[in-house]
């Protein structure tokens, strides 16, 4: 696998992280070395192996359908960068 600068741009866009050209070169070099290490997995035969998503073999617990939360808007919005009339404000979204 060889990672290109275009790949870096693409994933930086997907991850919504701005990266300038200088950073991109450094990120490219470091990610290339990380993926060289990761590529050791290629050699492993994993046919018939069940993927392991969780550290414990368990099933999800279920909560009773009851309303347990009260309005904590004032509390939660104290740390918000921008609010108005109880709404979170973001740059205008054009659809």
């Amino acid at each position: 696998m060889s990672l290109t600068l275009q790949d870096i741009e693409r994933i930086a866009w997907l991850a919504r992280i701005e990266i300038d050209a200088r950073e991109a070169a450094d990120v490219h070099a470091k990610l290339t070395s990380i993926f060289t290490m990761i590529d050791a997995l290629d050699a492993i035969d994993t046919s018939g192996i069940e993927p392991m998503s969780h550290a414990q073999d368990m099933t999800t617990p279920l909560r009773d359908d009851r309303v347990t939360e009260s309005d904590r808007r004032a509390d939660f919005q104290r740390v918000a960068p921008a609010t108005e009339d109880g709404l979170y404000l973001v740059p205008r979204v054009i659809e």
């Binding site: 909560r63 359908d65 009851r66 309303v67 347990t68 939360e69 309005d71 904590r72 808007r73 939660f76 919005q77 009339d85 109880g86 709404l87 979170y88």
Partner: peptide, 27 residues
């Protein structure tokens, strides 16, 4: 048509003031 949300205990009732039914999990 549940009383509470799928992953939190916040109410699903329609028409509440903005973000009044947005619990810690929902936000």
């Amino acid at each position: 048509s549940t009383a509470s949300k799928i992953f939190s205990g916040a109410s699903t009732a329609f028409g509440a003031p903005p973000n009044a039914h947005a619990s810690a999990v929902d936000i």
